[in-house]
Design a protein around this nucleic acid. Structure first.
Length: 400
DNA sequence: AGGTATTCACATGAAACTATTCTCTGAGTTAGG
DNA sequence: TAACTCAGAGAATAGTTTCATGTGAATACCTGT
């Protein structure tokens, strides 16, 4: 036992990895070269260029589905801008916030707190009135003459939670600043985002718009080839692998991130199996593994009540009969009683079901059964393998 | 038969409440000068 | 008198409850033929 483990570790250390630089495949990596995005880079560059003369650039909205390079392009242009600003001795910079990931800037308070921190103020994460945080941020940014470009990624999430007032305040801020000036870049993958916005905000924030079209399969191949050269030792990835990754990702709206993830996981699988060539089969394995893993991680992170609801849904699914909110609620109350959990109200459970739908774990639609009333009919929308794993996990939590 | 009114079983919306985490403030306490 | 401690007030936030209102179509009920 001991020796086999030693052998395994030794082998692992001695064996030459097929990766030469795995970070090049991880999310958040900004490559030096962004294929097929020349046009967007130029446009954004032109819009932001006035910052180099300490003039305020127009505000921008960037639209495009996930994995179309919005964030990468913005970061890339921002980096270049800062380089040039430094060389010219001008204080023009770009700061990047995400309103969703990690929940860092999804409320007005947190948005200003994060911004304040980025400009050197120390702001606690709770306890202060919002307008005080706002002032702290203003003071911090206004301490020097500068132009700050504020990027808010997944801005639709912020607006959906808080309404467009936050953005309105942000756009009016320039009139309160004496030294500094700000301009805003909003990034969203919701193409109908502007419908959520107040007309006032649209007119001041949507001065310029950039649309990022999805990549097609051929473009995805280029991207993958380039990253492969960076990330892998040469000649360990078969051409078929790249073709397959590109094809899988093109099938979903041309998502480059997904293509790269697929490539990375394929590589990891090959490496773990001790093989020194990545082949097409690895991609197939990666594809199904990633799906299952994603769902399971998602569910483990859900609050207990939501897990309980999902557990009852899975149980009901076994009866092979269509079922709605009422059925779920009844059984859910049973589950709660047996698991010593305080049942939530009908209203709340209804909401939890809707949230599970949004997460893509279940499929539901509101149907009217005439005199039978209206209800939300629910179906599980995850694969059998994933369901089995989930049930095993949930059985430990609940008894029924 | 054809038209309309009801009714069911929830959906959906808004507001209010709860518990938790955290800050700031100012009164009271302590210890050194 | 300056430094320290500590309780209390006030905030933000997630998660929930309470109350109110909305809704699509099968069915019951009518009306005139």
């Amino acid at each position: 036992m001991q020796t086999t483990l030693d052998d395994m570790f030794d082998a692992f250390v001695n064996k030459q990895s097929i990766f030469s630089n795995k970070t090049a495949l991880q999310t958040g990596y900004t490559p030096d070269n962004l294929p097929h995005r020349r046009e967007q880079i130029n446009q954004l560059g032109q819009i932001l260029a006035p910052a180099l003369r300490l003039e305020v650039p127009s505000n921008v909205f960037i639209y495009g589905k996930t994995g179309t390079g919005k964030t990468a392009v913005t970061k890339y242009v921002g980096r270049k801008l800062r380089d040039h600003a430094d060389r010219a001795g001008v204080d023009a910079g770009i700061v990047y916030l995400n309103s969703k990931l990690g929940g860092r800037a999804d409320t007005e308070y947190r948005l200003f707190a994060e911004l304040g921190k980025l400009f050197g103020a120390s702001i606690p994460k709770t306890g202060l009135p919002t307008d005080q945080v706002y002032n702290m941020f203003i003071n911090a940014i206004d301490s020097k003459k500068r132009v700050a470009i504020i990027v808010i990624d997944e801005i639709d999430y912020l607006v959906r939670k808080q309404g467009s007032d936050v953005l309105y305040n942000l756009t009016r801020m320039n009139s309160e600043l004496k030294n500094a000036k700000i301009s805003i870049i909003g990034i969203t993958n919701n193409l109908k985002f502007s419908e959520l916005l107040d007309p006032r905000v649209i007119s001041s924030l949507g001065e310029e718009e950039l649309v990022f079209p999805p990549y097609n399969a051929l473009q995805l191949q280029n991207i993958l080839e380039e990253r492969t050269a960076e990330a892998f030792v040469s000649d360990v990835v078969e051409t078929e692998v790249i073709l397959k990754c590109a094809a899988y990702a093109a099938k979903e709206h041309g998502d480059a991130r997904r293509a790269l993830d697929l490539l990375r996981v394929s590589g990891e699988i090959a490496e773990r199996n001790g093989e020194d060539l990545v082949v097409g089969d690895h991609v197939d394995i990666a594809e199904s593994k990633m799906d299952v893993d994603r769902v399971i991680e998602l569910i483990k992170k859900q609050p207990q009540q939501s897990q309980a609801v999902l557990y009852t849904i899975i149980s009901l699914q076994n009866n092979n009969k269509p079922f709605g909110t009422g059925d779920i609620y009844d059984l859910y109350c049973d589950v709660c009683k047996k698991s010593n959990l305080k049942p939530l109200t009908h209203r709340r459970v209804s909401e939890l079901i809707y949230e599970l739908d949004m997460l893509g774990v279940i499929n539901s639609k509101v149907v009217s059964r005439g005199r039978g009333g209206r209800t939300r009919e629910v179906q599980l929308s995850i694969s059998g393998i994933a369901t089995d794993k989930i049930v095993r996990f949930l059985r430990a939590e609940f008894t029924y």
